[in-house]
Design a protein around this nucleic acid. Structure first.
Length: 289
DNA sequence: AGGCATGTTACAGG
DNA sequence: ACCTGTAACATGCC
């Protein structure tokens, strides 16, 4: 579910809720996430506080007192809920509508604070993970080691991408999804970026000219910023109890639109679905060259 | 019932 | 070393 914009939105909303609350207890309903949780290890965060939350790529980094770091990846379906003193449950981003009953089943880890508020890590498919590190372990951990630049930072620019593409015989879609090239993009946004840039996903990067590379950079920054502003959009609203349709479809110009009319007003072609690097790939055969 | 799903990683083979 | 494809992880939805 979550690509860079969604993770950024989660970070921002958690910052407003959990910083400086004293952790009283951690409860484990299921320790078998992508990596098995070491329950005992969590005893060292009892009595401490979350001091800071950072995002790198799709990872969340929680800084806890005394040089303890908690690294979280949401995988495909990870999400956080916050429960306040009146037992009101808050989603930590607008894309998810709360459905009490369904949700609870997938509450995997619960952080209970001293003032009786709670932070819940919920994950249907359990591809996400939570790992605790001390500072030196954290600095050595392999997850963040090889990541490419953040797409919204200055070092993701024409020079960098042109150089990275040089002599690489891979498709543009494959390379944009490679976290070592650019950190934080996923399948949905890469489909969208290539549609906006009018580039066919199967094009080899060596065949891209300078203007096309510039377009990719501009559109990447534009779509990620727009999505963060609107609260993260790459998600289905998979609650069914309020009868509202998800915001999912209306935000995307190609993703999930197989057989539907191309979003460009002057085009009558239908969107094609294929598979690149084993991932669903949508494009307009007319508009994307 | 079978296929598909927003992510990451390991491995086999070219 | 680089590249590709496949599978695996666990669960739910259509």
């Amino acid at each position: 579910m979550p690509e860079l914009p969604e993770v950024e939105v989660v970070k921002q909303s958690l910052e407003k809720k959990i910083l400086n609350l004293i952790i009283k207890k951690v409860k484990f309903n299921d320790i078998n996430l992508r990596y098995r949780l070491n329950k005992g290890g969590f005893s060292k965060i009892i009595g401490k506080k979350f001091k800071k939350i950072k995002r790198r790529s799709k990872f969340l980094i929680f800084e806890i007192e005394r040089n303890i770091y908690m690294l979280v990846h949401l995988g495909m379906t990870g999400k956080f809920f916050f429960i306040d003193k009146k037992n009101i449950k808050y989603k930590t981003s607008f894309y998810y509508t709360i459905n009490q009953k369904k949700d609870q089943k997938h509450d995997r880890v619960i952080f209970l604070f001293k003032n009786n508020q709670k932070l819940i890590y919920n994950d249907v498919r359990k591809f996400g993970f939570i790992k605790l590190y001390n500072r030196s372990e954290f600095e050595k951990n392999f997850h963040l080691k090889k990541l490419g630049p953040e797409p919204l930072e200055r070092d993701f620019n024409f020079r960098y991408l042109k150089e990275y593409f040089f002599k690489r015989n891979r498709s543009i879609k494959n390379i944009l999804m490679d976290q070592n090239c650019i950190a934080g993009l996923g399948n949905i946004y890469v489909n969208e970026i290539l549609f906006l840039s009018k580039i066919k996903p199967s094009r080899k990067v060596v065949s891209l000219n300078d203007i096309e590379i510039e377009k990719i950079i501009k559109n990447t920054k534009r779509i990620l910023n727009k999505s963060i502003k609107s609260g993260g959009s790459s998600i289905k609203d998979f609650s069914s109890d309020n009868g509202k349709k998800g915001l999912f479809q209306q935000h995307f110009k190609v993703y999930g639109r197989k057989g539907k009319k191309c979003s460009n007003v002057d085009c009558n072609n239908n969107i094609t679905k294929s598979s690149i690097s084993n991932r669903a790939t949508y494009y307009c055969n007319q508009c994307q060259k």
